[in-house]
């Protein structure tokens, strides 16, 4: 049976994404599954739940359970450094370009953060996918999450168009070369196999498409809702936006439910196609690691295991 190796906890800020993802990860690890929990939220508090300082490197949190807090600024810096070195290695007139100031601007350019999240996810899944039974991602607030989930689809449209255009350029070069082999206008390659830009674009397309597949087919997505209108409205928006990307949620978690465990009618009405799991607040609060056991997520975790 196909198993969705990756899980994402989505929802409005403060609905309990970190708590539920941690509790699910802890529950599964206690059942003997090897779990990696990864926080993508720039305002990390995953480490606080487990009482440990986390970083970009794996830290053991419990038996069978390791954690990572993705440091986006480190990812951005690493990514820009690679680009910088590549430019210095390939440009003939590199001394005239003030690369460092350009790189500094790039750090704050819209879109860079989402891109960094994507490559961080790609790295984690590639590097640790075989080592763990499941990788659980605790996501940042909705705005950033939706942007990075949409990034592969949107960027792929661009890449497709650019590839088409590049093919036209190369075809034109071939035509000119066949008529006039000494044409001075031909600077670079004239076939898709030799053209480095075409190769790079194809590489980007391949990576983005595999990330889209990861979100679409290999990820278990659960949206968390609280008994309030705002978190429900945001959950509906998440579902709607993801459906536009052909990515579908797998379940809904009704967290901080009233003590009788009743799930709101409006949630049932709006998400009647999906399994809804209810979780009541832990009365004593979460103070120690063992308190995570009291969070009612077994049904959610079992559903995840079946997916």
């Amino acid at each position: 049976m196909h198993m969705k190796k990756v899980a994402f906890f989505l929802g409005k800020g403060g609905v309990g994404k970190t708590t539920l993802s941690s509790a699910t990860a802890y529950y599964l690890s206690r059942k003997g599954k090897k779990i990696l929990i990864v926080s993508l939220d720039p305002a990390h508090n995953l480490g606080d739940v487990f009482g440990k300082k986390l970083s970009n490197k794996r830290t053991p949190l419990a038996v069978n359970l390791d954690g990572i807090e993705v440091d986006l600024s480190e990812w951005i810096t690493r990514y820009l450094k690679e680009s910088r070195e590549e430019i210095l290695a390939t440009y003939r007139y590199n001394t005239t370009i003030n690369l460092d100031s350009y790189m500094n601007i790039m750090k704050y350019t819209p879109g860079t953060e989402e891109y960094a999240v994507l490559w961080a996810i790609e790295y984690v899944v590639k590097e640790y996918g075989k080592v763990y039974d499941r990788i659980i991602f605790d996501t940042p607030p909705t705005a950033l999450t939706l942007r990075f989930l949409a990034m592969p689809t949107i960027t792929m449209v661009w890449v497709r168009e650019l590839l088409n255009m590049r093919e036209k350029v190369l075809k034109k070069r071939q035509t000119i070369l066949s008529l006039n082999p000494e044409a001075h206008v031909i600077r670079g390659a004239s076939s898709v196999e030799e053209d480095r830009i075409y190769g790079k674009l194809s590489g980007i397309q391949k990576r983005l498409s595999s990330l889209h597949q990861l979100f679409k087919k290999d990820s278990y997505l659960t949206v968390i809702i609280n008994p309030d209108t705002l978190s429900l409205a945001e959950a509906l928006r998440i579902r709607h936006e993801l459906e536009k990307l052909d990515v579908h949620i797998d379940s809904v978690c009704f967290n901080k439910a009233p003590s009788d465990g009743a799930c709101g009618e409006d949630v049932k009405e709006n998400f009647n196609r999906f399994p809804i799991f209810t979780s009541v607040n832990v009365p004593s609060g979460l103070k120690t690691l063992e308190d995570l056991v009291k969070v009612e997520i077994p049904e959610l975790a079992e559903d995840m295991e079946r997916s």
């Binding site: 680009s83 430019i87 003939r92 790039m106 819209p110 879109g111 989402e114």
Partner: peptide, 18 residues
């Protein structure tokens, strides 16, 4: 309108002639 700046950044090393 343009693709994400970070993607342009990946192509930049090969675009000297262009």
């Amino acid at each position: 309108p343009s693709p994400p700046a970070a993607m342009a950044m990946e192509l930049l090393p090969y675009l000297e002639d262009e």
